[in-house]
Design a protein around this nucleic acid. Structure first.
Lengths: 205, 205
DNA sequence: ACCTGAACACCGTTCAAGT
DNA sequence: ACCTGAACACCGTTCAAGT
């Protein structure tokens, strides 16, 4: 029977979940699908494009309009959903991170747009809104990649107790860094929102 | 003549600067040094360890006690020095980022400690200071990796004018995101520094 | 102690040729 | 249109054997 893109992405995701990103190779994937390696290149231009498709599969659950009424809640919502999505796949953060950097994940770009919207509602005006959005994304990707790699060291069994990610409340830690950014956003937003009152620098000019 | 670790790191850095991280392979490096690939494994346990040594070489210029009097200036100083160091080597941000994630860069850990110190001076108490420090580092690495990969696309000549990193003031953009974090740090620090005054939420309980 | 030679078990990608 | 077979030009790592 014929090979279709979604089948390929399914198989790739299965390898990722079960063996990790190091084992997600074109040849291994072809073997799993009972095709020759060359067959994959009919459907995907190269490995990066395929990884981008896997990244978009991972980010699918994040694809939802935020329901929170105010912008801080919206940012929390998006970021928590994002971290959850990344944590549900082995090396998820690493894969999405590099796909985003390579500009191969459409959904990552969409998430940036949504975060930028929240930043605007916080009072950050273009083009700073996108900058703020990217800053938030860098944080979530960096934090989660770190968390996930520690989890792997942990599973491998070579980590002292105070390094163990299990003994620390990572969700609380994640929220702390996120709050840092939300607070910063509030300050930055307030400085450009009419309210020149109690803002000493450049009140009117 | 004998092969010494610093020679190896020198040669590796040269390959990185001239050809990029994709060409920094053990075999290529051995060829450049006129030794067999196996020789490298007498000096380094594996490729990750060697890359960690290159990362530390890149971070060397950042290794300096901050001279700014107040913590916001110190953070700016460290982060600007860090970004400059990363930008002076092809794929510098990507290399340091992955070495840090793999726990192979001692200097990266040192930089986190220095940022944590600044966070403490901002009023963020342990263990949140390290969390704050890591958040700042995630930002610098994420931003700079992004900036650097856009620079590469640009050099390759396939980017529209408004995507071009040259037409945007990236240093100003970098400062914006950094300010976001510094502002957040100020808020967080103030909330734990005695001053419960004019802080509506959980002022006393 | 330090290095070579050779092997092992892989990679990503291309492309003529088949159906 | 879609895929195979086979090749090209590589990888990281190990390890007996040499000096």
């Amino acid at each position: 029977m014929q090979l279709h893109k979604p089948d390929v992405v399914d198989a790739a995701t299965a390898i990722l979940d079960n063996y990790g990103i190091a084992d997600l190779t074109m040849r291994r994937l072809a073997r799993e699908l009972n095709v020759s390696p060359g067959a994959l290149y009919w459907h995907f231009a190269n490995k990066q494009e395929l990884l981008g498709a896997v990244a978009d599969r991972i980010l699918q659950p994040v694809r939802t309009e935020p329901t929170a009424p105010a912008w801080p809640g919206q940012i929390h919502q998006i970021c928590v959903a994002l971290r959850d999505a990344l944590l549900s796949h082995t090396d998820g953060a690493e894969l999405v991170s590099s796909s985003f950097a390579a500009g191969q994940s459409e959904l990552a770009t969409e998430i940036v747009a949504q975060l930028a919207g929240a930043a605007q509602r916080a009072g950050v005006i273009p083009p700073d809104d996108e900058l703020a959005a990217r800053t938030v994304l860098y944080y979530v990707l960096g934090f989660t990649a770190d968390e996930q790699s520690r989890l792997q060291w942990d599973a491998a069994g070579a980590l002292t107790d105070d390094q163990s990610v299990l003994n620390r409340d990572t969700s609380r830690q994640f929220a702390f860094g996120l709050q840092l950014l939300v607070d910063g956003l509030a300050v930055r937003g307030a400085s450009t929102l009419g309210a020149a009152r109690d803002m000493p620098q450049r009140s009117r000019d």
